[in-house]
Design a protein around this nucleic acid. Structure first.
Lengths: 240, 240
DNA sequence: CGCGATTTGTACGTATGTATT
DNA sequence: TAATACATACGTACAAATCGC
């Protein structure tokens, strides 16, 4: 008997969809047919189909079946991200890109009224205030402005900041990151952006503002990531 | 006996969380406790909790419980969106904003090689090519450049385009929209943008590129939405 | 350090609801 | 109308992570 765990089902179906193996009918086999083929529960099949749907490959229609979507260009281009980005330095994925981190500023400060309004950290607590420039393919592409709650994330050093603060948090501190709430907006570039980024003729930046929480529900980070135009693409799939 | 349908459970829990009714322990009651309280299945409770998690209010931790996240500022500001936006004109939500649509161009054209590369529509098919300017709070804020497959979405008129093409599709044509794949990027403004948008001193725009599919899996739309900086915020919640 | 007790996660089987054909 | 096919809901069992003793 063939061993088929759930990841297999997803990969097998995905391969078939991409190969065009089902394109005659533009449908997946019915759930019942797949249950028979893989000899698993409906739950397992539905889970695999959900993953395909999350990939934007198929769409389930009640009373009809699982429809295969026409394929769009493989979203090539330079960079793609959105959904699942740790500190934004994990935009490595598979693309071969030169990257380098430059510490532009490293301080420990106490949250005052103004900083509280911005970061929503309580007034009076100590935070690390770090500015880092991400150099990608010989361009200063991202300016990260981080504030970490020093009570929740103690012991950050410039050396750690040079690498990955997130691996330090997850590895050395063994802290679990639970949720990151994010906002993305487009803003007119500020002085700091002009000084640190290779904006070229552009006078605007993208700004991703992140609030990160650990699994005790405590906010441990506020970050603004300013990035230059034309180099980043954010993908999203909306299901109706 | 109290009738508690599933929507009730979510709203009740949400109210309690926002009221701080659970903040002593920073936890929700256990699933079993909630099952007893509402006299429903675990499925129903978990569904309600999932909705709270999607709101970014709580986070479930295996072996621990459902943690309540510290609250961040109510993301007030001008506009908020991302996740669930039809043609981008449905950014109405609850905010009171003046809006007006101006048809800048309306044509029917045949897809050539160049247009095929951009839209991924097959060469030779007829499409509606529409340019519309969205005026919001007395500013030309969005330039929509639409291409609709005229075979799948026939009968579009300037009058329809002046209102909502999506209500025409869903209402008159009774077509089901299944999936929209989207990319967001920041670009240097082009001639069209300068002509149609109130960019102010900015020389960049946001560009949301959408590919929309119906429930037969057919792509019926390609759209670029160019929008001015500083006026739109995109929110997102990432769970780990 | 280990060992239960607690608590959420995953999986299965089944029954019923609802949209499509 | 009937058959088909996915969606929702319930109950149950066991796995896995956490926490306290």
């Amino acid at each position: 008997m063939v061993e088929t765990n759930n990841k297999d089902i997803y990969s097998v179906l995905k391969k078939r969809v991409l190969n065009g193996q089902y394109n005659i009918k533009m449908r997946l086999p019915t759930e019942d047919a797949l249950i028979d083929e893989f000899t698993v529960s409906r739950y397992a099949i539905r889970k695999a189909i959900k993953q395909l749907a999350d990939d934007g490959l198929v769409y389930s229609v009640k009373g009809k079946g699982v429809v295969i979507l026409e394929q769009t260009p493989k979203t090539q281009e330079i960079n793609l991200s959105l959904e699942k980005i740790g500190g934004l330095q994990s935009l490595n994925s598979d693309q071969k890109i030169d990257r380098k981190t430059i510490i532009a500023d490293f301080q420990q400060v106490i949250v005052d009224d103004e900083l509280n309004k911005k970061t929503s950290f309580a007034i009076g607590i100590p935070v690390y205030a770090i500015k880092r420039v991400r150099r990608i393919n010989n361009k200063n592409a991202v300016l990260d402005i981080n504030y970490f709650n020093a009570q929740v994330v103690p012991g950050i050093t410039p050396e750690i900041a040079k690498g990955s603060i997130y691996s330090y948090i997850k590895g050395d501190l063994a802290m679990k990151i639970a949720v990151v709430k994010r906002q993305l907006r487009i803003e007119h570039a500020c002085q700091l952006d002009y000084e640190n980024l290779n904006l070229g003729m552009n006078n605007c930046v993208g700004n991703i503002i992140s609030f990160a929480f650990n699994d005790d529900g405590k906010q441990f980070e506020y970050t603004e990531s300013h990035f230059i135009p034309d180099n980043f693409i954010f993908n999203q799939i909306i299901k109706f």
